[in-house]
């Protein structure tokens, strides 16, 4: 009963932040600020969805003692770690590619990277 409630809360938090990421993509003005919204919120939201899966797996594991649920839980943890790493690296790759292809941050108070390139 408590486990079900915890799983529901984790899923709700995860979906809330993933939704905020989508709203951020729609509302922010240029590619860099959109990446801000998208990488942080989707990573955090998906960590919570992964946590819901882990709680479910652990509760079933302690109930049944079936090894399948241990595999299930560990695979979810590995997937979440891989997601956190690749999300940050992917965001960096997209931002770098955007800057190299001439996409300047549209509202910006300063752009040191462009200054370095011009030298």
């Amino acid at each position: 009963m408590i486990v079900d409630a915890v799983i529901l809360i984790f899923l709700a938090v995860g979906l809330l932040f993933n939704t905020l990421g989508v709203v951020g993509i729609l509302r922010f003005p240029d590619v860099y600020t959109r990446l801000h919204a998208e990488t942080k919120t989707t990573t955090f939201g998906t960590i919570f969805i992964g946590l819901a899966v882990v709680v479910y797996g652990v509760s079933r594991l302690s109930g049944s003692g079936d090894g399948e649920y241990l595999t299930f839980t560990l695979h979810t943890i590995i997937a979440v770690v891989a997601l956190a790493f690749t999300n940050a690296t992917g965001a960096h790759a997209i931002a770098r590619a955007a800057h190299r292809s001439g996409q300047r941050p549209a509202p910006a108070v300063v752009d040191r990277l462009a200054e370095v390139k011009e030298e």
Binding site: L20, G24, T33, H36, F44, P107, V109, D111, R112
Partner: peptide, 24 residues
């Protein structure tokens, strides 16, 4: 820090208060 970042981004998504730029 990640939890804080998400609250921060949520705040900026809703209010639109940004002052962006690239620093070294």
């Amino acid at each position: 820090e990640m939890a804080k970042a998400n609250v921060d981004v949520a705040y900026r998504v809703i209010t639109g208060r940004i002052r962006p730029g690239i620093v070294r």
